[in-house]
């Protein structure tokens, strides 16, 4: 799967590429407006990560240009501008998601995962991973055909883990994903333990706790 990272901060672009390359994404980068515009015109990507403030132009113009060409590439705006106005404007022009900087790469990976999934026009809206089958429309999870009942938070966590498979996720990654902006008002995120523990327990009841590994003193990992 192809991803274009449009980001003028080269170091950040390199990191994003590094993180995403752990999964089977092929990444390209564009550090300025002209290069970015050229690339989106010439090629097709599964997902484009778009910074708004670029040397040589405004990221919104690239998005508008893309949509005017009737291209349906998934677009996630990654910007330091996090005002509601910017978000609404971005989504109105045709972005699929908006992620404010600074962000955890795990959050970005989960969002990319979600955007690509939606863009693939899978009519069944199913995520199937070995024995686990997740129905995104009805928000139900089956393991080997047996339904398991998850709370909203546990369901969110499961999707987040699958979107970041084989990656180590820290407690703060998980807390920020679950609580969003309010997470940074608190230092203690111990509630994450409880949710993960419950999720693990429910998976264990079906005999599949092995995917979700606890890494001592560090965090968690969804291993396949």
């Amino acid at each position: 799967m192809k991803i274009l990272v449009i980001e003028d901060e080269k170091e950040l672009a390199i990191d994003i590429v590094k993180y995403l390359s752990l999964e089977d994404y092929r990444c390209e980068t564009a550090n300025d407006f002209a290069t970015a515009k050229e690339k989106v015109s010439l090629y097709q990507y599964d997902c484009i990560l778009l910074d708004l403030m670029l040397p040589g132009g405004d990221g919104f113009d690239i998005l508008a240009h893309l949509r005017s060409q009737n291209k349906q590439d998934g677009v996630i705006i990654i910007s330091a501008k996090d005002t509601l106005e910017d978000k609404i404007k971005g989504l109105n022009i045709g972005a699929d998601d908006y992620l404010a900087k600074p962000f955890h790469h795990s959050e970005l990976a989960a969002r990319i995962h979600s955007v690509i999934r939606r863009k693939q026009f899978d009519p069944s809206n199913l995520i199937i991973q070995n024995e686990i089958k997740i129905d995104l429309l009805s928000k139900t999870v089956h393991i080997e055909g047996n339904p398991i009942v998850l709370t909203k938070k546990e369901y969110d966590l499961l999707l987040f883990f699958i979107g970041n498979k084989n990656r180590v996720l820290s407690k703060s990654d998980l807390a920020e994903h679950l609580s969003g902006d309010v997470a940074d008002m608190f230092d203690s995120h111990d509630f994450v333990y409880a949710h993960v523990k419950n999720l693990k327990k429910k998976l264990n009841e079906q005999g599949y706790a092995g995917y979700l590994k606890t890494i001592y003193g560090t965090g968690y990992k969804w291993e396949i």
Partner: peptide, 25 residues
Amino acid sequence: ALLKSKLDILFQDEKLGTKQSELVN
């Protein structure tokens, strides 16, 4: 943003021991 990004990348390093991971956390 860069600091956060670098830490995330460091966190994924397989050679990172428990002690180092704790530090990153």
